[in-house]
Design a binder for these strands. Sequence first.
DNA 1: CAAATACATAGTAATATTACAATATAGTGG
DNA 2: CCACTATATTGTAATATTACTATGTATTTG
Lengths: 95, 95
Amino acid sequence: MDKELATHAAEVLKAVAHPLRLRIVDLLAKDELCVGEITATLGEKQSITSQQLTILKNRGILASRRDGARVFYRLENKNVTQVLNCVYNHCQAKK
Amino acid sequence: MDKELATHAAEVLKAVAHPLRLRIVDLLAKDELCVGEITATLGEKQSITSQQLTILKNRGILASRRDGARVFYRLENKNVTQVLNCVYNHCQAKK
DNA sequence: CAAATACATAGTAATATTACAATATAGTGG
DNA sequence: CCACTATATTGTAATATTACTATGTATTTG
């Protein structure tokens, strides 16, 4: 297996290998949402949510658009959903 | 999405979110191999390879058995292969 | 038992990640 | 412009990860 591919794949995996980031991606799988909605839905602090949104955006998982005072985030890398489904199926199968 | 599921899924993702660990898992997808073979095939240092094998074993991804002086590692968590295939497909699709 | 081979672990310095509080910036309405 | 809402960023301490060297342990062979 290609070393470069491994490095790239590891970056993608690291990007989502965090409980809050996983929940954010899961939440945005359906529609785009603004930061306030994401924060409220997940019950996390504003600054932490924003921080993790920035990480996901920088790593190409999410994209954002500003609409007035609000910023909406959406899933940019749709393939990530499939990766997560695999992991979820695996986790639930283990129960 | 369940917070607990997110935490568990994140742990699995973190376990494989490392270039060398990904290459190890990929290598062991076919058969079990001993540490020496893994080290030689991947061209990494012995101690680092052993360290990463231990991490993968502790996190339930691999299992091992001793046969004389050698220790063979094998994929214990077969579901991980599917997760990795998703990531690889994604990475290659992006090219 | 001694030497050699195979593997694991300890110690460590550099770096990355995390959660948090505090503050800054952008936009809206009056 | 002012107050308010919405989001982003900064600074920081705690913790985790990484790569590496050196050393330890287990096993086989002579």
